[in-house]
Design a protein around this nucleic acid. Structure first.
Lengths: 247, 247
DNA sequence: CGGGGGGTTGATCTCCTTCAATCAACGTGG
DNA sequence: CCACGTTGATTGAAGGAGATCAACCCCCCG
C-alpha cells in the first residue's frame, strides 16, 4: 500500500465531506475529539468484498466516499441486494458481533471506522450520536419497507423507474427542491447489480431501460448516464401515489 | 366505551406483561415513573385500522397484546405487508409526525401509548430507552432485509414453505429445540393476507398449499391447521441454506 | 332459504426468465 | 498496431411461473 493512498490523507473531522449527514452530524467539538480518538480509515477497491455474511466485525463506521452493497445469497446463487450504502451511510451493528449480510464495494470505497467497543461506550453517553444513529436506522427501516413494496408488487418497468427516481433524489442537494426538468442521473452500478437490487434478471433490466428510452421517459448518454427530461413523467411510471413519493 | 374495558385495567408498569421485552425493558424505577406520567392505553378491535398511512400521529407506543400489520398500498389497490407487530413491538417514529404505513389490528389489540413530544424529550436524556429502541429498530431492519430476499428471489412454493416454517419457529418455546416430527402449525391469517405478505395472489397461495399437501410436505386439517410430518423436509423446500435458517 | 366470506380449481394470458447470439469498449501481449 | 480475450450491455426467441378471470364449493349465520 502506497504512503499516499487517499485514505491516509483524510485525518480531521473538521473538513470531512460527510460531516453534516453521518452519525456524527450533530456532534460538538468535544465529541469530535472523542470520535477522532477511536477512528481510523480503510479503503477498498471496487468489487472487493468488505465483510462476509456471518463474519465477526471489530468496527462500525461510515462510508466517506464510494458505493457499497448489502447482499443476501442463496445456496444456488440467487442473490438479493438488501441495502445500498452511499456516502454518509452507516455500516455495522452496535451490540452485535456478526453481520448478517455480505458487504461489497461497488466502486472504490473509503470508510471512516470506529473501533466497535469504544464506539458502543461512547454511544451510551453521547445522545448526539445515538439520536442520530437511531434516526438513520429508522430511515433505513422505512427505506427497506418501501423496497419490500417494490419487490413484492411492482412490475419490472415500475421497478426501474423507481430506482432511477430514488437515485435522482439521493443526489439532490438537501433543502433544494428538485427542479423537475432535465435531471442528470449517474447509475452507480452495472445492469447486473441493478437486477440483484430489483429482484429481476439483467436482461429484463436492459430491456426495460431500452423501453423507457424508446418512450422518451429517459435519455441515455453511454450506459451509465441518464438524463430525465421530466421528473413528473418518471414519477408517474413508478406506480407510487404522489404523496407517498414526496415523503 | 365501557368503564371496565380491559385496556383501562392495565395501569402499572410493574406488572406489565411485556415489560422485559419492550422499549422500557432496561428502565429503572425512576424511569418507569417518568414513563407512567406520559402513558395511556388504547384498544382496537380485530380488523380495525389503527393508523392510516400519512396520518399525523400524536403518540408512539408498544403492543401489549394482539397482532397488527404494517401495510403499504398502491393507488390501484396492490398491497404489500411490510411488517408484523407482535406483543412488545414498537409503533411510531420519534422525530417524525406522520406514519408512512397503514397499521391494522389483526386480532384485538391493546396498545401502551406514550405522548409523542414528551417521549421524544425523554429519549434524549434516557439512554436506557433510546438504546433499547435502537436495538429493536436494528432487529426490525434485519427482519425486513430477510423478507426482501424472500420477496425478490424466492419461488411461490419456497415463499409458502418459508412462511409456514417461520410461523412454526415463532410458536416454538424459545430454548427448546424444535423437534422435527409432526409439528402442528395454525395459520393466523386468511389466504389473502398470506398473499399480501408473500407478494403473491391468493389463488397462487391456495394452489401452492394444495401442491405441498399433494406432495406430502404438509397435512391439512381444515383450512387453517397444518401438520408438518417432517420439518427437515419443509426446510429444504424453503430454499434457505441450513445455517441461514438457524440464524 | 338465501347470501356472503373464504377457499379451491380450471383455463387462459402475459410478463418475466432462460438460453443464446451479437456488439461495443477496453486492456494486453505479441 | 492488431488479434484476442474479457466484461458489460443489448436484443431475440422460446418457455414457464404466476397473474387474471371465472366457476364453483363449503360452511356459517341471519
Amino acid at each position: 500500500m502506497g504512503r499516499l493512498e487517499s485514505a491516509t490523507q483524510l485525518r480531521s473531522c473538521s473538513d470531512c465531506p460527510i460531516r453534516h449527514r453521518a452519525v456524527c452530524a450533530r456532534c460538538e467539538a468535544v465529541e469530535f475529539e472523542q470520535l477522532e480518538a477511536i477512528k481510523y480509515y480503510r479503503s477498498y477497491k471496487a468489487g472487493q468484498t468488505m465483510v462476509w455474511a456471518g463474519d465477526h466485525m471489530e468496527f462500525v463506521g461510515s462510508v466517506v466516499s464510494g458505493v457499497a452493497n448489502l447482499t443476501q445469497t442463496m445456496e444456488d446463487g440467487r442473490t438479493q441486494m438488501v441495502g445500498l450504502l452511499l456516502a454518509s451511510d452507516f455500516i455495522g451493528r452496535p451490540g452485535r458481533d456478526n453481520v448478517p449480510f455480505t458487504v461489497t464495494a461497488v466502486s472504490d470505497v473509503t470508510l471512516c471506522c470506529f473501533r466497535k467497543r469504544p464506539f458502543e461506550d461512547l454511544l451510551v453517553r453521547t445522545p448526539n450520536v445515538s439520536q442520530r444513529l437511531l434516526e438513520m436506522s429508522l430511515d433505513e427501516l422505512d427505506a427497506a419497507r418501501d423496497w419490500m413494496l417494490l419487490l413484492g408488487r411492482k412490475s419490472a418497468r415500475e421497478k426501474i423507474s423507481s430506482l432511477i427516481n430514488i437515485i435522482a433524489r439521493r443526489n439532490a442537494v438537501p433543502g433544494t427542491t428538485l427542479k423537475p426538468r432535465n435531471i442528470e442521473v449517474v447509475l452507480p452500478m452495472t445492469r447486473e447489480v441493478m437486477a440483484d437490487y430489483l429482484g429481476l434478471t439483467l436482461e429484463t433490466v436492459s430491456r426495460q431501460i431500452s423501453a423507457l428510452k424508446r418512450d422518451g421517459v429517459i435519455v441515455l448518454d453511454g450506459k451509465r448516464n441518464i438524463m430525465v427530461p421530466d421528473m413528473g413523467r418518471l414519477m408517474s411510471e413508478t406506480g407510487d401515489d404522489v404523496d407517498g413519493a414526496l415523503r
